Amino acid sequence: LQGDSAVMRKLQNQVTRTALSDLPVFIQGEIGTGKELVAQAIHRGSIRAKYPFIRVNCRELLAGWNIETADGVKNCLMAAQGGVLFLDDIVHLSLEHQAQLLQILELGYYQNSDQERLFIDIRMMASTTVSHQELLVSGKLMTELYYRLNIVSITVPPLRERGDDIVSLARLLLLQYSRQYNGVAQCFSDDALNALRQYPWPGNVRELVSKLKRVALLADHQCVGSELLELPGTQEDTHSLKQARADSDRAAVIKVLENNHNQITASARELGISRATMYRLLKKYDLHPNKNK
């Protein structure tokens, strides 16, 4: 949720204000935009923060509001008591569950299979990738339930609309994953920054995270170029250009070796990489420096 763009400042303000109330929240956004992160941020800032935040994938919800966990099957309503129940992808909630959810929102309880009244004290949050208009027209969600849940509505902006937030977020994540994976990558080249800005990011922040984890693992240099990002439509994929870049990199390694009298450790230190990475570069470019010098 970090960022200084206008859309992110608006979102941050909505999260702060929404946390002060105890109303149901409806969070809409494309896949990978961070809808669950928004719900968690609201929970952390609310009076229910010390109580559980229970996420339920509506595709996997079992009868009786049961969910499978590592510890076995449990009732998600009881597990969320006092806290927040986050219904992820609510369009996949069954009609039976929708009717029971409406009753909980209206009366504060629902009846289990033994016709017992189970009183629930939780804050409801729901997310969807479907637009509000489509929700109403498609009939995927009961109209009355939609209006009960949609008291506070938040739309999470896609990454492509966040301007230079993309660059600042990419830099932050690159450093984070480089530390996590003991990688060498520290920054992006100008062509990589342009590629990050120009790519439409259909998978949003989730796609950015996946890309940068891969980059942090595979990078041989501190400065990451656009070719390692492998973004569709931005790759320099002609053979001649790839070969020219490889030749340039090989020449740079040779120059560093010459400057350091073929000493592997000193050369690696100048490049800001580990000895292991230096040996990979030597193997990659078929270089055999005299180690005795």
Rank of each mutant, 00 (worst) to 15 (best):
A19K: 00
A19F: 01
L20D: 09
S21D: 06
D22S: 11
P24A: 02
P24M: 07
V25P: 03
F26E: 02
F26V: 02
I27Q: 02
Q28P: 00
G29C: 09
G29T: 08
G29E: 01
E30M: 03
E30H: 03
I31A: 10
I31L: 02
G32L: 02
T33L: 04
T33A: 04
K35T: 08
K35L: 03
K35V: 05
E36G: 13
L37P: 00
V38Y: 04
V38R: 04
Q40A: 08
Q40C: 01
A41V: 01
A41L: 02
I42N: 04
H43W: 14
R44Y: 08
S46I: 06
I47D: 12
R48N: 11
R48K: 13
A49T: 12
A49E: 12
K50L: 06
Y51E: 14
Y51K: 15
Y51A: 14
Y51N: 15
Y51V: 01
P52R: 03
F53Y: 14
I54P: 00
I54G: 02
R55P: 11
R55N: 09
V56Q: 09
N57W: 01
R59Y: 06
R59P: 00
E60F: 05
E60N: 14
L61E: 10
L62W: 01
A63E: 15
A63R: 09
G64E: 11
W65N: 13
W65Y: 14
W65V: 07
N66G: 11
N66Q: 15
I67M: 15
E68G: 01
E68I: 14
T69N: 08
T69F: 07
T69I: 08
A70R: 12
D71W: 02
D71G: 13
G72P: 09
G72S: 05
G72C: 11
V73F: 12
V73D: 09
K74F: 01
K74W: 00
C76Y: 07
C76A: 15
L77V: 09
M78V: 12
A80N: 12
Q81Y: 06
G82Q: 11
G82M: 07
G82Y: 08
G82K: 10
G83N: 04
V84S: 10
V84L: 05
V84R: 03
L85K: 09
L87C: 08
L87H: 10
H92L: 11
H92F: 14
L93Q: 12
L93C: 06
L93E: 06
S94W: 00
L95Y: 02
L95Q: 13
L95D: 08
E96K: 06
E96D: 15
